[in-house]
Design a protein around this nucleic acid. Structure first.
Length: 651
DNA sequence: GCACCAGGCGCG
DNA sequence: AAAGCGCGCCTGGTGC
């Protein structure tokens, strides 16, 4: 093994020459400032050390030859029996023109080696180490494995060996790990004083600030503004920052409480399945994006014009809107009090405005215009524009990351882009398409919440209704509104039942539903009469939390951590968390079919999967089979959608 | 000019 | 005492 090189001072860029005053020979004021700024930047960056380097927990940096780096990594694998991996990128998503893998960090909790993947010798070290490690650790592994796979440094089979620290972190009681699963916060909470990441991140932030670079970059952030793209990866500050993630992740891997192996394996399996969409992506139909933009853009502008004519200059300003509506004689409710607004602010939310839609005169026109404006604005800015950017700045594919334990109930979440929140109507979903020769099949659980309610509470009446296909919401509507109940009454009853089942108060729900407290009370009385065992079960859940029992095991063995300070949330956590396990089981079952290796997208109670065109009908039937099962004697049922090359509206 | 918050809204 | 639940992303507005 080569002896480690000693750390050496910066060889950085040549210092620029500055203007001096010709008579005095001194720097001008502006030049003086420039000198100071350059000095501050150098100080924030620290010395520069060519990669690869090794970094220990004290932050000491040791320069290495590539072969020696491989040796240090091999020793870490030997010590830990696993390799912790982390990467730094340019901050742009894979597929984007500016996407780049900048450094790769490998090691254990004692030593992290920072490598430059652009150097062929170091790339080989990375490849060899990643292939050799019997186990891999990362925190939020998708962010590391996807860029590594795209750089050809590993393949998706690496998931078979990945033990993501997010899994034990999110399975643990959030009061012990903090609600934010981000590594910096988690390391600070779990590792306390021995954490290296929080301080390293502070230094990194100071460096970005000294250069005026952005931390929070978007797809359209100019590359010269992005700190992640611009920063010198060989400066001590970035080396320590990069290394700290490995050091802390490796430490977390051995310190986080380990769930039962069967639970861990189940979570690893579903993470592997949902990671495919992040690796391979789904094709965005640019023509559909263009078509919808051509509809929504002029409509939004027209609505903004109407708003101006009615006295609201800035169409997106809720404050101006509230002011104008008040001038026109409308009384608005107030939002929740906060530190900034101790009395709340006048609320102009859709729920409020919907109830005022019929107001005669300019106020009514104003409300109609703003609801119209908001709709078009949301569709354009939240969905269509980001999709267009994926086509123009990227390769036309959306590669969302699915967080399989994204929420405190255990539900999954989805980011960059969040394909779980696409409008059900209006053709936005059709922007997401299958690859040529393939089709999207999908199915959703029917009435899964009510079925889980019945399963958990074992309410005999709910069970009977589900078996006989009786409409609970219609029964509630009949009891609450009388025999002449309407479809609208049934919808109100449905919202009331779920709202109350999840802990809502009569007054607050009545306000949300736009009914009197008496009507809301009648809905609740009806539910109590129809499903008393369910109501008793919900009460018992809350009582348990109040008495300190906050751990509810699901049928799959995962513990749902009920929020100690909010007993009224317990029934919802139990139901939502149990329904999540049904989704996991369906994904695991789907993975055992012949389409198992393909791209899937879970959407809480729906699964979308890409399959070869010719298989559409059979695959749909199989997907329904994978989603169907029995839960505590209750049939869990799935409803297929028509297969299609583009994701279909859901109504 | 950036980071952060609140309100709002998309989904389940 | 009472509190519908869970998310992610957008804009406007504020504060540094």
């Amino acid at each position: 093994m080569n002896p480690p090189q000693t750390t050496r001072p910066s060889t950085g860029a040549k210092r620029p020459t500055y203007k001096t005053n010709p008579t005095t020979g001194r720097y001008t004021k502006a030049a003086q400032k420039e000198v100071e700024r350059a000095e501050a930047r150098r100080a924030a960056a620290g010395e520069s050390v060519p990669l690869p380097v090794a970094v220990d927990r004290s932050g000491a940096i040791t320069g290495l030859a590539p072969a020696a780096a491989g040796q240090v990594v091999a020793e870490a694998i030997g010590r830990a029996g696993a390799l912790t991996v982390d990467v730094e990128t340019s901050g742009y998503p894979v597929g984007h023109a500016n996407a780049a893998l900048r450094t790769v960090q490998l090691g254990d909790e004692h030593t992290a080696v920072v490598l430059d993947p652009d150097d062929p010798a170091q790339a080989q070290v990375i490849r060899t180490a990643l292939a050799a490690a019997p186990r891999l650790h990362a925190h939020s592994a998708t962010a590391d494995l996807v860029p590594l796979a795209h750089a050809g440094l590993l393949d998706e089979s690496a998931w078979d060996r990945m033990y993501d620290t997010v899994i034990p972190a999110k399975l643990a009681d959030p009061t012990s790990t903090g609600s934010d699963p981000g590594l910096k916060q988690l390391a600070g909470t779990v590792l306390a004083d021995s954490a290296t990441a929080p301080e390293a991140d502070k230094a990194r932030a100071a460096l970005f600030k000294a250069h005026g670079w952005l931390t929070d970059t978007k797809a359209l952030t100019p590359v010269e503004r992005s700190g992640w793209a611009q920063v010198d990866s060989t400066c001590a500050t970035m080396i320590r920052y990069a290394a700290s993630d490995v050091l802390d992740t490796a430490a977390l891997a051995v310190r986080l409480p380990q769930p039962p192996p069967a639970v861990t394996e189940r979570e690893r399996a579903v993470q592997r399945i949902t990671a495919r969409v992040a690796h391979r992506g789904l094709r965005v139909d640019r023509d559909q994006v263009t078509h919808l933009e051509a509809v929504h853009t002029p409509a939004m502008h027209a609505a903004a014009e109407r708003l101006r004519a009615l006295g609201v200059e800035s169409a997106g300003s809720d404050r101006q809107l509230a002011e104008r509506l008040t001038e026109l004689g409308v009384t608005l409710p107030r939002t929740q009090p906060s530190t900034r607004h101790p009395n709340g602010q006048p609320s102009v939310a859709a729920g409020v405005l919907d109830g005022l839609k019929g107001t005669p005169g300019p106020a009514g026109d104003l409300i109609a215009a703003v609801l119209d404006y908001r709709h078009h604005e949301t569709v354009l800015t939240t969905f269509l524009e980001p999709y267009r950017v994926l086509c123009e700045a990227g390769d036309g594919r959306a590669r969302p990351t699915v967080y399989t334990l994204g929420t405190d109930t255990g539900r999954m979440s989805c980011v960059r882009p969040n394909l779980q929140q696409l409008p059900r109507e209006g053709g936005v979903r059709a922007c997401i398409t299958a690859d040529p020769g393939h089709t999207l099949v999908s199915a959703d659980f029917s009435g899964v919440e009510i079925r889980v309610m019945a399963a958990l509470s074992q309410d005999p009446e709910l069970i009977r209704q589900l078996r006989e296909g009786v409409d609970l919401h219609a029964m509630v509507a009949e009891l609450a509104f009388g025999p002449g109940w309407t479809k609208a009454n049934r919808y109100t009853a449905k919202r009331g039942v779920f709202g109350w089942a999840y802990g809502g108060g009569i007054e607050s729900l009545a306000r949300q539903l736009g009914v009197t407290a008496d009507v809301m009370q009648a809905i609740v009385d009806a539910l109590r009469q129809i499903a008393p065992a369910y109501v008793a079960w919900a009460d018992e859940m809350k009582r348990m939390v109040r008495s300190g029992a906050t751990q509810m095991p699901t049928y799959a063995g995962r513990i749902i951590h009920l929020p100690r300070d909010y007993p009224h949330k317990a029934p919802n956590y139990a139901i939502q968390g149990t329904a999540r396990e049904l989704l996991v089981d369906a994904l695991l079952a789907w993975d055992q079919t012949r389409w198992g290796g393909g791209v899937v997208l879970p959407v809480h109670d729906e699964i979308v999967a890409m399959v070869p065109e010719a298989d559409a009908a059979f695959a749909t039937a199989e997907l329904v089979r994978c989603m169907s099962r029995e839960l505590y004697g209750i049939q869990i049922v799935a409803e297929p959608s028509e297969p299609s090359a583009a994701w279909r509206d859901s109504v």
